[in-house]
Structures are given as structure tokens and as C-alpha cells.
Nucleic acid binder design. Structure first.
Lengths: 177, 177
DNA sequence: CCTATGTATGTTATAAGATAACATGTCAAG
DNA sequence: CTTGACATGTTATCTTATAACATACATAGG
């Protein structure tokens, strides 16, 4: 129970593909979400973090789509389901998820998105489609390496960073502007 | 008047150095600010953008320090000087400056900082010192090249992006913690 | 000169995002 | 079964941002 559950890869699982364009590709999203949720649960258990009902529900809500939701959007959902209806309820759950690597905060949108790669140590760049609002995590190891280098050249020590891009996803791009 | 004023380089002017660690180095800031302001004026003229009194004043305020100011901080200053005292006054001026490349929005801080390199087409990464709150623009051409590449690999077309890092500047770093 | 037009500024009001502070509940270790 | 740590709930407030409308100001055309 303390070991992260081994994740069985398969061709059916978009989350398993090396390429992380999942968010922008047509796929079996319930599988996708279930998979992430299972990994998140295992990860939380392994870390001794308590994935309580509210927190779990918030993660599920975020997982419903590859989009980012505002805290108040989440709150509305929670309230409708009998959880607390005050902002701190949503913010606390969201903060928990972010701190435990189960969700990301998208500053450009004042919103939050489920992490699609929980546990796979990563510090992604976020690609936000301005047309369909989908958000994807792009692998950003090399980007961050460059950034760390640029900072180090100035004697600056980076502790946390956020890289976000706004533009058009493949689908909206070909859908013509 | 339509040509950007040629900028005379000198060893005294930190803004002239290739290395952009200016924000984190001790320097003659009034020179630094005056210089940027002059270039901003020339640039605005060249672009046909009207650097009106409020807008100019906001830029001056931002230029007083290498820090980012919230819209309401700016507004307070403006109000004290006889300009309007309602949020849109500050937001409009700030938006103008951002759109014309004279200031940057730092999303992580919900704040704005003067651009220290107006006109020199750039899309910097921001280095934010969590100890002294100074903000510097790091050259990010290579970082952005990597980012564009990563996005392109997913078929995503980046239109705008923000790269921000939080950490410790050289001074605060050696000041221990 | 003056007036129509576009742009800038000012004001009112409110929306949207976030947190401080405190009360209550829950669960597991001692 | 009680204590302590953590989680949830609630009240109130704060900060950030924008919509909508009114007024002034510059300037190009008549």
C-alpha cells in the first residue's frame, strides 16, 4: 500500500503514450481520468497524504476534462453535492492537490488543472488553447534546463517557476483560426 | 522624431551592459530610469502611441525601482498626485504600457514592472527574488526556442507565453537564506 | 473657425479571485 | 476515553479586475 501501484501500460491508454499531446487528441477520456485518479490515490498513500472525500472529489472534477477550472467553478460543483459552499473549502482542497503534485495552478487563467502525470517528477510547460480552452502539459525538461542556465548566468537561483503558453491546439489550428 | 533616438552606450550605464543583471546589481538607478524613459518616449512616438501624462507617470512610477507594483499600488500614487482614483485609471494606463512593450505583467505577482529594454524586441523570462522582491528580465531567446520546439512537437502553435521564476537573487543568496 | 469623430480620462458599480480568523468535527495514538 | 493533530465548515473581509456609462480633449474636414 505504500508502494506506488505499478502502472500497466497499454496502447489503449493515451496517458501511457510517451507523447503527451493527450489533451489535444480524441481519446477515451474516462479511461484517461480513471487511470490518473488511480495513480493519484496510490501516490497520495505512498506520501502519507490523505486524499479525503472533498479532495478526491475535487480531483475528479478537475479530471472531467482537459481544462482548467477556477476555484469558484469547483466550489459550485462541491456545494451542489453537499460539501461546504464557502471559498476556503475549494481553495484548501485545490492547494492540497497542488502541493502534493496532483494538480497544477495555471496562473494565466487564475485556474487549476489536474496533473496528468502524477508522480512522474516533472515540471511541465502548460499549453493553453485560446479557442477550445484545453490545457496540456508539455514536457519541459530542456526548457527548464535553458531557464536554469539563463538564471544561473545572472547568479540567480531558481526555486520555483511557471511556464505557460497561450495559442492554438492542433485541432483548433486546422479548424482555421 | 519618428526615428527611435539612437542610444548612446557608456560604461556608466548599467542598462547598456550586455548582461541584464542590472536589477540585481548596485547601480545609478536614476540614470537607469531616465534612460529607459527616454527610450520609451522615442519608441512610443515612433509607434504613433500616445504617451499621455497619466501613462507616462505610471511608467515613471514603475521605473522607480526594479520591482513589480500592483495596480492598486500604482493607483494610490496616481490619486495622491491628482489623477483619477478609480481602478480603471490605473488598469488602462498599465494595459497601454504592456500592449506597447513598455511594461510587463508579472502574473505570479498580479503586478506590473517597467520593461527595461523597450524596443529591443524581446520576450524575457522574469526572475523574481522572493527575499527582496526585485524583478529582472533574463534573456530568454534560447528558452523560448526550446518552448516553441516542445509545443510544435505537439502541433501546438504558441502565440504568447509567460516564463516566470521565483527564487533568490545573487545578493539575497549570499546574504544567507 | 468650428464641429464631427475618435480617443483618452473619469466615475459608478460590481464581478471575480483569494485569504484571515475562528468554530466544529474527526480520527488515531497514547 | 482523552488528547492532539489535522480536516472541514463558516463568517467576514480583502485584493484584483472589469463592465458600463459620462465627460473632456485633440485634430482633421468642412
Amino acid at each position: 500500500m505504500a508502494q506506488p501501484k505499478p502502472h500497466v501500460h497499454s496502447d489503449d491508454c493515451p496517458g501511457c503514450h510517451a507523447a503527451p499531446e493527450v489533451a489535444f487528441a480524441r481519446h477515451d477520456h474516462s479511461h484517461c481520468a480513471d487511470d490518473v485518479l488511480a495513480r493519484a490515490e496510490a501516490l497520495a498513500a505512498a506520501q502519507g497524504a490523505r486524499l479525503t472525500p472533498v479532495r478526491r472529489r475535487v480531483l475528479e472534477i478537475l479530471l472531467e476534462e482537459h481544462r482548467a477550472l477556477g476555484a469558484y467553478d469547483v466550489l459550485q460543483r462541491l456545494a451542489a453535492e453537499g460539501f461546504g459552499n464557502q471559498p476556503p473549502v475549494a481553495y484548501r482542497a485545490l492547494d492540497f492537490l497542488v502541493e502534493n503534485g496532483l494538480a497544477h495552478r495555471i496562473r494565466r487563467l487564475n485556474a487549476f488543472a489536474a496533473c496528468m502525470h502524477p508522480g512522474e517528477a516533472h515540471a511541465p510547460a502548460f499549453l493553453i488553447c485560446r479557442a477550445c480552452n484545453h490545457v496540456a502539459e508539455a514536457p519541459a525538461a530542456t526548457v527548464r534546463a535553458e531557464l536554469d542556465g539563463a538564471a544561473e548566468a545572472l547568479g540567480f537561483l531558481i526555486e520555483r517557476s511557471n511556464i505557460e503558453a497561450l495559442g492554438l491546439c492542433p485541432a483548433c489550428r486546422s479548424a482555421g483560426e
